[in-house]
Amino acid sequence: MSTAILRLLESVHGHLGALAAVALLHPAILLWRGRPAGRGARWSIGLTALLTAVAFGGGILIYADYRRVVKRALFREDMTAGFLFETKEHLALVALCLCLGAVLPALAKGPEGEGQRRLAARMFAGAAALAWLLGALGVWVHSTRGF
């Protein structure tokens, strides 16, 4: 891929990640007390999962070129930023797992599903916290070196 396309994909990945960080808060707040998810909340849950998965997929898409073009230069310029990028990779996978794993319990119906909805809210909250952290790390790394 050309550098221009990589820069564009990197930017899109960053923006989708920021949107996902905000979106993840919504189901966490809606489900925190275990109330059943209405129609709007179910849309919120589905779209949040989709957005998070697409943001993660965007990162995977440019990861091979990142290794080829950026990684060594990033470590040369700032070792801390290089290792923070590695941390960002790890946390991104954990955030994705939490978000996807929370979808089914979030959609639990009836009063007997209250516990599952509370659990889903905690998972979305954890994913949101990680996503905000990922955003901060992403900005730090990108300010050091990008495509």
Partner: peptide, 8 residues
């Protein structure tokens, strides 16, 4: 659903 949580 709970098995999915454990998997995640």
């Amino acid at each position: 659903a709970l098995a999915g949580v454990v998997a995640a």
